[in-house]
Amino acid sequence: MIEFERVSRRFGDLDALRHLNLTIDQGEMAFITGHSGAGKSTLLRLLLLLDRPSSGEIRVKGELTRAIRSHRVPRYRRRFGVVFQDHRLLFDRSVHDNVALPLVIAGFSPRDSARRVRAALDKVGLLAQEYANPATLSGGEQQRVGIARAVVARPEFLIADEPTGNLDPQLSSEIMALFEAFNQVGVTVLVATHDLSLISQLRHRIITLSSGRLAGAETP
């Protein structure tokens, strides 16, 4: 469970988020939408402790994130799988090594790691490209490698910021289907997106931000 309690984030005299109250249940899948500059990325960055709120509290499974000491932050972040809009793959190494990165950080043995990497690549349908350089893959394939990297260490939460921003509708719905598959095995999924036409077809909660405030939350 993720709880935002009257969370504000000010940049100078701009309120990126203002007195935001929000609860994401354990095992839920939810979309965050809103105009550009509404505060979607800011919300996700606060959750990952890449930024701190100006006021208010964020709790994850009851734990106050403000109380997490800085040397504990990396461990906290490992509970999240993160998918970026521009996938952020490293082109100096193979698809396999990209996906294995969270396992190296978390300290899995190489044998165990290789097995998990293959399982994750299989899930996103890219097992055949395991040893390819990610630069040679298409945009949709690169985003799927990014998803494999986000889920390979089996995080509790999956966070995605505009994961389909650069993809055509066909590829976008494939990506969303992948997120749903992970959600079905118990991962809490939070996706920030502009793509209203796509998410309105899916039966998940849509949280709409407007100038840093909650504009409405539809429950299916």
């Binding site: 190296v104 079905q184 095995v185």
Partner: peptide
């Protein structure tokens, strides 16, 4: 898909992890 949480039993002990990460780096 298996359970979403990591399985600590499959991980190495801290010293082995530390050594492996050093070797790789």
């Amino acid at each position: 898909m298996n359970s979403p949480t990591g399985q600590p039993g499959e991980r190495w002990n801290r010293a082995a992890v530390w050594r492996a990460q050093h070797r790789i780096a």
